[in-house]
Every structure is written in C-alpha cells, then in structure tokens.
Write a protein that binds this DNA or RNA. Structure first.
Lengths: 194, 194
DNA sequence: GCAGAACTATGCACCGAGTGCAAATATGTG
DNA sequence: CACATATTTGCACTCGGTGCATAGTTCTGC
C-alpha cells in the first residue's frame, strides 16, 4: 500500500521542513543569533541531539539544500545552447533561483542573511561551491581550452556574476522588496562591462 | 628614557606578533583546525584568557588587521587621479596588498585560507567590508551620482574586482608561488570585460 | 618617591555549537 | 511473529568565545 517507496523518507522530509518552519518563526521573532538550537528543538518537539540529525548546523536551517540547488543551476547552464554567450547563459541559469512562489519568505530569508554574520559567511561559501560547479561550462563558453582544474578566468567570471546576484538581492532587500531584482542584476553586470 | 611615548603599546605589539608567529608555526605543523587555542596560548607562554585579549578570534591570527588594510587601500584609491578609470584606479589601489617582502609567508598564508573553511569565510567577510569602503570612490569614477548607501552597481564593481584578486591569489597558490599574480589578476579582469 | 588611576594577566565559571557513543524505541520486511 | 534497520534520545565531551572578579603592573600627577 506504499504509495511511494519510502514512507520513512517522507516522514523524514516532513519533520525536516517542520523544524525549518519552526526555526524561521523563532528567527523572525528574536533574530538568528539570539535563537539557540535548544530553543528550536524544544519548539519543534524533538531533542537537541535529534535536531543535529536533521541539520548539520544552525545555518543549514536557512541555507537549505545548497549543493542540490547548485547542481540544478549547473544543469540549466549546460542545457543552454552551446553558442550562447557566457554572460547570457549564466544569467539564464541563475534565474533558476527565482522561487517566485513566496516573495515574503524570500525577503525574510535575505534579511536574515544580512543581519547574521555567520549566515553571510555560509552564503558566501555556498557561492564558492557554485563557482566550482559552474566554472567548467563557462570556461568552454569563453573559448578557453578545457583543463583539469578550472581556469582562473572562468572562476573569476562566475564569481563576478554571483557578486552581481548578491548585490542585486541585497539592494532588493534594502528596498523592502520593492523594485525588480533582475533589473538590478542586469544593471550591475552592465556596470562591470562598461 | 621612553624612546617612544608608549612602552605599554610597544610590548603589547611585540607580544601580539610573537603569539601570531608561534601560532603560524603550529598551523604549519598541524594545520589550522587541528590546532587549538589552548595549544597556542601554552606555546606562547600565556594563559588562554590572555590570548583572547590579543586576538578576538582564532582566525584573527591569520587575517590580521583587515580593517586597517582596507582603509589604506581606500586611501590609495582616493589619492588616484580623479579622471582615472574605475578599473585602473582600483587595480592600482589593490596593489597595496603586495607585501612583497616575504613571499614564502604570503604563500603559507594563502594555503591556510584554502584549507580551513572558517578562514575562507572570514576572508570573504573581510572583502565584504572592503567593498563598503571602496564603493563610494568607485561610484564617483563610474559617473554615478553620490548616494547615502553605495549604489549596487558600484558595490558589484568592487566585488567583482575582489573576486578577480581572490581567484588570482588562489591560482598563484595552487601553482606553488610560480607565475605572476598581477598578470593573473589582469587576465581575470579581461575575461569579464571581453 | 608616592598615591592613585589605568591597564594587564589570570583564573573561573559559563554559554552555545557540534560530535561520538551507546542504549532504547519505532518501523519496515521476510 | 521475528529479525534487521532506522530513528530518537541522553550523556559526556571538545572547542571557541565571553563576563566577571581579583591580583599585579605600569603610567601619571604631585
């Protein structure tokens, strides 16, 4: 009668997302740093130890599945037409990130990353990981020969694009969600290339 | 007989740099993460508590006076001719960072930042701080009107330049100090603007 | 030189994040 | 039902970092 192969996996995901929701509520109330893991665990009705079975770190509550997201961006990037320019293809791939379905949540998210240094740091590390994932395809599009380790120029290219993304999100966040983040991104890119 | 006004300050600086030297030795032997603050304090002949009077965090041992360095870069940037382009002026300002007097130490430094995630994170946060410091002048050079908070485009510009710097240093580090980091930086910038 | 202010060193107790281990419990499969 | 496999939980521990109080040292004005 198992509608999906894994019931275990389903409940696990459900619990995981409920913990995250509880945590986001607490973060909104008291801030990220002022909220302890013990509080979150208590509020979610699990033990402190179990919490760490669901999330490796407190930051993971906010920056969920970064690796998976990075890979899906990479997949979109690699699916773009081979002759498309690096900027254009990368721009299209990064649009994957626009969840769109809940801008209020996105804003809360961005605000958290701004206020808590440890979150900012983790986010930047996440970008670093994406950089490694996306660099090979960009390297090809830049007309650079394929190499074992990504060419520094490709890495710089991706890193700069992620900088533009980050700056756009931050400006959008400072403006309380007013304005178009995509336009901000494009303006930032244009400023670099002028 | 006080050759300089502050004997206190002098000894303080001496102790501070000796702690840092001791720590760098331990880091080289066992790695950053495997070395505890207690070990460093013991090796430096001070108490654990005193250590934290000299360095706020373990990472500060490696990433010394980031704020001061950022301000000196900003000063150089602002001293560049007003009509110089943003890229050129920023490039010149970032050359401040070439300590040059001890490339081996620089390499050890860069290696540490590569291996220890917490150090990488801190370094990126340092860049974030520099971004805020350098953005206003860049904003002017880009022909953008002055604003209260830095324009996102100026921030993206600085952030991209720092990305290039970082990528260049990393490539230089991966090549064991062979090659010219300045050339790598210029190539990275060229790749963005092509 | 001396008295008091200001700084420094240290110990101690504490917090919060994160981990390893082992026992108990729940859940899936034959 | 019985067995294997996850999951939950508690416990003890490490490590980075902070607040506080106390003892000692240096600097300053007289």
């Amino acid at each position: 009668m198992a509608s999906t192969p894994n019931l275990r996996e389903r409940t696990r995901r459900a619990v995981r997302s409920e913990i995250a929701a509880t945590a986001m509520r607490l973060f909104a109330e008291q801030g990220f740093e002022a909220t302890t893991v013990d509080q979150i665990a208590a509020a979610a009705g699990i033990s402190r130890r179990s919490f760490f079975h669901y999330f490796g770190t407190k930051e993971d509550l906010v920056l969920g599945d970064t690796a998976g997201l990075g890979e899906s961006i990479r997949d979109v990037l690699e699916a773009r037409p081979a002759e498309e320019s690096a900027w254009s293809a990368l721009r299209a791939a990064l649009m994957t990130l626009r969840s769109g379905d809940d801008p209020a949540a996105d804003l809360a998210h961005a605000r958290l990353c701004r206020e808590a240094p440890s979150l900012r740091a983790r986010k930047l590390e996440k970008y670093l990981h994406w950089q490694e994932l996306l660099a090979p395809d960009v390297q090809r599009r830049l007309g650079l020969p394929a190499t074992e380790a990504p060419d520094p120029r490709a890495r710089a290219f991706v890193s700069a694009a992620l900088s533009c993304l980050d700056v756009a999100v931050e400006a959008w966040c400072e403006a309380d969600g007013e304005g178009d983040p995509v336009r901000l991104f494009d303006e930032a890119v244009a400023a670099l290339r002028a």
